[in-house]
Structures are given as C-alpha cells and as structure tokens.
Design a binder for these strands. Sequence first.
DNA 1: TATGAATGAGTTTTCATTCAT
DNA 2: CATGAATGAAAACTCATTCAT
Lengths: 193, 193, 193, 193
Amino acid sequence: MNKRQKRAKIIASSLQLFSKHGFYKTTMRDIASNLGISEGSLYTHFPSKMSLATAAISHVTGKLAIDLRYINSKPISATKKIYEFVKSYFSFIQKNPEMVEYFFQVYLSNREIFCNEEDCGFSLAKEFIEELEILIDDGVKNNEFTQENFFIAFSSIMGILGSITFLHSEHVLEKELESYCEEIAKAICRTLN
Amino acid sequence: MNKRQKRAKIIASSLQLFSKHGFYKTTMRDIASNLGISEGSLYTHFPSKMSLATAAISHVTGKLAIDLRYINSKPISATKKIYEFVKSYFSFIQKNPEMVEYFFQVYLSNREIFCNEEDCGFSLAKEFIEELEILIDDGVKNNEFTQENFFIAFSSIMGILGSITFLHSEHVLEKELESYCEEIAKAICRTLN
Amino acid sequence: MNKRQKRAKIIASSLQLFSKHGFYKTTMRDIASNLGISEGSLYTHFPSKMSLATAAISHVTGKLAIDLRYINSKPISATKKIYEFVKSYFSFIQKNPEMVEYFFQVYLSNREIFCNEEDCGFSLAKEFIEELEILIDDGVKNNEFTQENFFIAFSSIMGILGSITFLHSEHVLEKELESYCEEIAKAICRTLN
Amino acid sequence: MNKRQKRAKIIASSLQLFSKHGFYKTTMRDIASNLGISEGSLYTHFPSKMSLATAAISHVTGKLAIDLRYINSKPISATKKIYEFVKSYFSFIQKNPEMVEYFFQVYLSNREIFCNEEDCGFSLAKEFIEELEILIDDGVKNNEFTQENFFIAFSSIMGILGSITFLHSEHVLEKELESYCEEIAKAICRTLN
DNA sequence: TATGAATGAGTTTTCATTCAT
DNA sequence: CATGAATGAAAACTCATTCAT
C-alpha cells in the first residue's frame, strides 16, 4: 500500500469514528486500533488530530463538489438540476453516511476545531459552496427561481437537506430515505420558485 | 438567592460558555469562575457536567415551546402562525443568541452527550416538537398546507431556520438578521403550501 | 500545610531530582511520587514542568544572593569578603548540594529550557550577579584588586568555584570539600590582586 | 566516501546540533536530515543516540589533547605553555565553537547521558586531563607554580576557561574573545604562581 | 547498504469529580 | 452549604529504534 492509499484509509477510518462518536469522543487510539495500526503510525501521515479532521472535511466536500459540478455541467433546467442534486445527495448518504454526518455534525457544529485566526475553516467547503452558488444563479437567470437573497436560497436547499439528514441519522424517519427524494426536491423547488 | 434562582444562574452561565466555546472546550472551572463561585458549589446543584448540558437544553426548548404554544393558541391562520413563529424566533435569537446557538451547535450536533441506552436525548425537545406538530397539523386540516409528510414539513421549517441561524452566528449574513424575517417566512410557507 | 509551604516542598523535591538526574530524565511522575502526591496535584501549584525549573532556579539564586548581600554589607576588606564568600559558599554546598548542582548543571547548561524570546533566562540569576559585581567593584575601588575587567574577575571567582563544585559532585576530590576552602580563596585572590 | 569519513560527517553534524539545541532537544531525525541521509543510515554507523554523544565527546577531547600534547612537547617554560594553551584554546573556540560548547554544555552538564555502572564517563576526557596534569606537574617541578593541590590547579585553569567560554557563548562579552587572551592567561598564571 | 514507515513505551498536561475543612 | 486542593484516569503527541523492501 502506498502513501496515498494509506492516507485515504486513515481518513476513512477517522470519518467513520468522528461521525459516530464525535470529534472529542474519538481518540487517536480509537482511530489507530480501528485500522489495526499503532498510534505513532498515525502521526507519520498526519501531524495532529486536527489535521485529520481537516483532511476529512476536505475529502467530503471535495466529493460533494465533484457530484454537483457534474450536474451543473448538464444541459438541463435549474429545477431539474435540483432534482438531480437531491437524488445524487441521497445516494451519497446511502453509500457514505459517515461522510455526510461528519459534514453536518462535526464540521458545521464544532467550529472551534476548524477555526484559527486567519481562516474560519469555511474555505474547506468553498468548492462545494461555489458550485451551489452557480446552480442558484443559473436558476435565477433562467427565471426559474425567484430573484432572491442568496443566503435564503442556500438555507432552503442545505437547511432542508441537512434537517432530513439529521432525522435520518437519528433513525426517526418512517420510510427509506430515498422514498423522500421526490418530495424533498419538490419542497426545495417550491421555496425557490 | 434561593435554590431555583441559583440553578437558573448556573444554567445561564453554562449556556453562554457552551454556546461560545462548545461543550468540550468549556470546563467546569470556566463555568464556576464565570459565576464567581467554586467548582464544588456547582456540584451541589448539578450532579455532573452532563446534567448541566441537559438542564440547559430543557431550558432552551422549554422557552421555545412556550412561545410556540402561545402562537398556536391564537385564533389565526396557520400561515399567519408561521409568520408569527419566525418573527418570535428571530427576536428570540436577538435576545438570547447563546440559547439558539446552543440548541443547534451543541444539542443537535454533540449527540453523544445526550444519548444513553434508554433515551436518545430527543425527549428533551419533545415539548417543542409536539407544538410544532400541532401547528403543521392545523395547517393541513385547514387546507392551508398541502397534506404532506411531517418530516418534510418539519425539515422545511426547522432546517431553513437552522441554516439561517448558522449563517448568522458565522457572521456571513450581509444585513441585520431581522431584515430576513419576512422573506424567510414566505420561503417556508411556499414549501408548505 | 499552607500553599506557600506546599510550593516550597515541591521546589525542594524538584531540585533534588533535577540535580541528580537532570531536567529531562526527571519526570513529573518522579517528582510527584517522591513527594507522595499525585501528578495532578503538582499542576495545582505549578502550571508546567518548566515553571518548576524556573521557580527552582529563582529559589537557589535568591538564597545565594542573600548570603552574598550579607557579606557585602560587612565593614571588611574585599579580600576578606572573598574569603567569607568562599566559606559561606562551601557551607552552602554542604547543606544544599542539590541546589548548587542544580545551578551549575541544569541552569548553566540547559539554556534552552530557560530561554524565551524576550528573556534569555539570565535575569533569574540577576540578583546574585549584581551582588558579585558590587563585591568586585569594591575591591577595585579600594585598590585591593587590580583585575579590572569584570568578565575576567567574574570568571576567576565563579569559574573556579564552579569547577571545584563539579569535581566535588563527581566525587573525584580526595579530601573533604571544606578542607580546600582556604586554598581556593587564596587562589581566587591571587588572580584578582 | 568511506566509512571513516562518513562517521566523521555524522559526528560533526551531531556536534553542531547537540551544542546548539542540547542533547535532548536534538532528535535522530534532526541529525539525519541535517546530513541529508536517512535515520536508518545513522544506525549503520552508530548503534544508538548515546553512542553518538560519546563519539562526539571523544572527538572533541581528542582534538584538545593533541593541541595540548604538542604544546607540552615544546622546550619552553610552564608559564609560557599556559599562554600557548590559552591562545590555542581560544583559536580552537573560534574555529570550532560547537565543539567547546558541546564539551561544557552537554558533556559536563548532562552527566546522566555518559554515566553507566562501570564508568562515569570521565574516561572520555582522560587523554586531555592527563596532558593537563603533565603541564601542571612540570610547572611545579620547575618551581614556576606553587606546590599545590592538583584539583585546585585544574579548577583554576579549566574553571576560568570554562566560565569565559560560557560568557562568550551567551554573547555577553563586550569585546572579541581573542582580545581577552593575554589577560586570561595572566590571571591563570597568577593563581598558579 | 540505504531507506523511511512503523512501532509503542513514555511524557506532559487536562479536567470532571470528590471530600476534608 | 461553600470551598478549592487533591485525585487519577485519560489524551495527544514524541522519538529512539527496528526491519521489510
């Protein structure tokens, strides 16, 4: 296994544990033994626990950004793009629940972990947020979406998706997550229209 | 100062610090010295740090529930109730930013703090959620809101409010929070209608 | 035992172990168990291992400065003061070998421990060095000492004392330390005259 | 580069870093990367970090011994030999400050590094100390130096030189080191006479 | 022989909780 | 009841040394 592969494995393990038990309740020992390696070995690849959290969030938002960028590139209406995004996002949750949970529960919430003087850690998600901005702008230009404040549009999309993600991870939803896909997309579009 | 008042003071102090620095970065010493009392004294009123977090969340959701219950009791349309709720919620944020931040950033995110075998900590917000359910049900019964899945309706309301709260606490909003009130309420209603 | 007494006990224990095994080979656990207290207890009184080293050196140089100040205040010749200082210093070694060993072996050598940006740790010994300067200046003013350069005079006194201290702590001296007192004082005076 | 040359290079690098940052604050990685080689490679040439420290001190005292042996072989008075030794020592400091600093600040001070059950690490400097003994004995035999205890004579020479070396390495001397040469030699001789 | 990732014991430090005063 | 020193069980991180490639 080469260095890049090892890093990827460590990030995957961290993601899993951080999302399950939270950043603070996950110890470096937990991550190491979950991988069957020594604690010291972790430090060969990442200089600190915080750098692990950072690498993990970059990984997650990078993945989300790639999916959204692909959807944005399609020659379809903005409304259709919202549908596709919700679908793609739901399938992403199914395949990588730990990634999305990590995004919402660790990154968005334990801000103190990611913030330093210069950068409040937001730049880590920049790629993804920019792509979302493109999607919204497109919709407004096409007159599909009401000209509206960006922050409200952003909240309508990510707030609703975040909330349903939360309910799903709390196991309070009655049906399969994917069965809400259509309705959620519709709900989001209603807000934007 | 009697026992109840003392408890209230301790909860207020905890809320302030938990919301600012997070649950884990706030020490019992921080809470005590913020109040000018001893650490030992804290334990006369609360048996553990966790119990402080729990009492704090009950306090916050209790307050939110009271406001919403009052709105629900009014002889107005469900749509109007949504407007009133958003307005009341925004004014609540202005007056008690630490309470709302605590709700979203500590309670919803550091689930591991509140969960034990029997209870996943959700019951703490039960009062408030039940009140929200009443509001949604009313709207559906009156045919103001489309008959819809509760979870989606819930996400439309609390997701959007949560997201805008987050953006506000991150200081990325361009205008005063209250100036978004009308638009946010409209956006939520569009989803529900 | 009050707080000041406890601090003094901890400093004494640290001094003993630092001088015997060096700063780096002495662990906080060693210091704590040498005192029969817990590691955490150490941190109630001193915020870090480094602060212990600093408190220890201040303690030692303070003691040395007091002795020398008293000698300086006497109405005797500078040459006689040198004799008295050597005598007092030797008796100090007998009573507190760990203090002097600490001074020479830890303080003078592990400079990296005591240095920070502003202060290179020398100020900790300032009191003592200033008193030594007074003694030398007196001798020069009285025409007892011809050696005018302070640094050479300083080295003649402290270098010779330091070296004999070192040989003593290495157990290579053949006779009792105090039996060298007279000769050492003479040797120092010969250099200064 | 042959094996001996490689060893020499490693010793030089160690000496540099040990004298600058101390034995404990210098890691094997530091030494290796300072040389542009791998950590493992270090262990092909030296079995442990301690063996590096030992080899380094032998190297330094060996160099000093050679210089002093050469001076001792000259057909000149003991007093003149002291002058020559001080001159040679000062020029040695100028050319190899790290060697002398290492001798005084690591070897003489972190005794715990060099000591084991059998040998307290003193033998490493034996060659040099023996040569110094020869010089002192010569002076006594010629009636140039007062018959005196060896340890006091030793301290007069090495103590004064050590102290001035310390002040030099601390950058507290006002003039160039070499400008003190004559006076220091005189001061030492006054003690010995 | 050279490499450098892996190891794991050891170190400082933190902090919720307890309890003697 | 209030206090705050004491506790001790972790936790993050370090680094000399080893060993497979």
